[in-house]
């Protein structure tokens, strides 16, 4: 790891000021991706702005018909939250399937979203549940937040403060993990709210998380696993690597979506 200066702001405002003064700085949340990346020298920020002591960034509450989760809330806390378990059990289950227990005790929802790893789990939930990312500057709808692999709508000096998830009528997440890394080769989050069904896919797209128009169209008339029978997803734009070809991933998407819909209906 290359040397950096370390800052531990007490507020988000201080964090934003520090980011303004240090153009090469990175925000440290749980560090479960950033630190390994720095150890491999794939990232060498001049400064780290640690949000660990910044006030008001963790916690889970219900606000109206939304579950609002603070950016520094650890995966383990989302997984074990009675509030999330009651309102959006699919989200609690997703958080409980990230990494391993020790990683879940450090990793945060805000960190995962700001990083936008193309195989991360949380982006699919945010996109399918049509969540809103609330930063120190503005509110960003999920459809505008994710802008390609490791790329988001966050601007310089912008820090995620919380994420607001509308409570769906039905939702589930299903992933097909790589047997070695346990990262999603294909992960599908389906969510039905009123007449709208959204299907978000992670792990498969070469441009990161995306909504599957094919699956959404098939589920529009009827939210049922059978609706996905015969649905074909195009391989263009999907990842092809030593783990799976783009055709294989394309085939997996409706298969995993079908399992997710069945899971959502079983609840």
């Amino acid at each position: 790891m290359y040397a950096f200066s370390y800052h531990s702001p007490k507020t988000v405002r201080q964090a934003a000021t520090l980011l303004g003064k240090n153009p090469d700085a990175k925000v440290l949340a749980g560090g479960q991706t950033l630190l390994p990346t720095m150890k491999q020298r794939l990232a060498s920020p001049s400064a780290l702005i640690d949000l660990g002591k910044a006030e008001g960034l963790s916690g889970i509450e219900v606000k109206g018909r939304n579950v609002v989760i603070g950016a520094m809330t650890r995966h383990a806390d989302v997984a074990s939250s009675a509030i999330v378990g009651e309102a959006i059990p699919a989200l609690a289950a997703l958080a409980g399937g990230i990494g391993d227990p020790a990683v879940r005790n450090r990793g945060t929802i805000g960190g995962s979203l700001a990083n936008n790893d193309p195989a991360a789990d949380y982006p699919s939930a945010v996109l399918a549940l049509n969540a809103t990312i609330i930063t120190n500057k503005r509110k960003i709808p999920a459809d505008e937040f994710f802008q390609g692999m490791f790329s988001t709508a966050l601007e310089e000096g912008e820090v995620i403060v919380k994420v607001s998830f509308p409570i769906p009528s039905k939702a589930a997440y299903e992933k097909f993990p790589n047997p070695a890394s346990r990262y999603a080769m294909v992960g599908v989050f389906v969510a039905k709210k009123g007449s709208e069904t959204r299907v978000a896919v992670t792990g498969a797209g070469s441009d990161g998380v995306f909504r599957s128009a094919e699956c959404e169209a098939a589920l529009k008339a009827r939210f049922n696993p059978k609706s996905l029978d015969g649905v074909k997803v195009k391989a263009a734009g999907l990842n092809s690597d030593i783990h799976a070809s783009s055709e294989y991933r394309a085939h997996l998407i409706p298969v995993i979506a079908k399992r997710a819909v069945a899971k959502a209906m079983a609840k």
Partner: peptide, 18 residues
């Protein structure tokens, strides 16, 4: 750390202040 298991190779010592 504060009663929860973590991977100490992926945590900065300074982040454990307090």
């Amino acid at each position: 750390v504060d009663g929860r298991s973590i991977k100490s190779c992926t945590t900065l010592a300074v982040a454990c202040d307090g």
